[in-house]
Design a protein around this nucleic acid. Structure first.
Lengths: 113, 113
DNA sequence: TCTATAGTACGACGATCATCGTACATCTGC
DNA sequence: GCAGATGTACGATGATCGTCGTACTATAGA
């Protein structure tokens, strides 16, 4: 990750949190292609912010951290610090602006499995 | 692949060509999450059957075969033999029945990249 | 201050992935 | 039959992935 050393303030966000116009369809689809991550996204679908621990996932804490990072770096979710928790929420607006209908379509598809 | 030896006629299709009701959203999303495969799917979007070689892809023949297999085993495309060629086409109807709107949404998202 | 609690960082592991080259199979046209 | 074209099979390689355990940080509450 040589680029990390080159980040200016203007681009320092790109590693962990891609801007709306930087979202890549391949990365988003890859993020959504894992069952555990799809479960996370489905749980956040109602718009309510949820902590990592409040979701009952069939993996350990460290794997959980990994999946939240993949979703965050793909631009699917954002994470907000509050106390000892990280509150997660979907980036609905950004996703809808960039890839209209994608999130709803995928979640509806996942629901009928 | 032990199952291969156990296939009866009733299930002999499942390895290479999942039935409509066997399509899995995770497998489909994974298949679509690769740029080369997305390019293939976009090229087949007009409904025209195309041979593997008629698509100009930035990979070798064997890699091409690999990508077509991933798409076929996920249920995204079907392959038909004709002469020395394999004609590929999207499984539009099956995908639409199982995951309504998914294909169009993804392709529209991919087009705006 | 001490102790939980919530999550991250890091390293490891086996599995899967995308890619390639070479060899092979199959069909067409001569 | 032979040569060319189209695609597959197989093995290899380096990269990425999903998972875990352990150690760590940071906050909240007593």
């Amino acid at each position: 990750m040589i680029e990390a050393e080159l980040f200016t303030d203007a681009h320092a966000h790109t590693a962990g949190r891609p801007e709306r116009d930087e979202l890549e369809i391949s990365a988003v689809l890859h993020a959504l292609s894992d069952p555990v991550r799809l479960q996370i996204v489905a749980a956040l679908h109602d718009g309510v912010e949820r902590s990592c621990g409040s979701l009952e996932l069939p993996v350990t804490k460290s794997t959980c951290t990994h999946h939240f990072r993949v979703l965050r770096e793909a631009g699917v979710i954002r994470q907000r610090h509050e106390g000892t928790s990280r509150l997660n929420s979907l980036r609905r607006d950004d996703l809808e602006a960039r890839f209209p209908g994608l999130l709803d379509t995928v979640l509806r598809a996942a629901a009928t499995s």
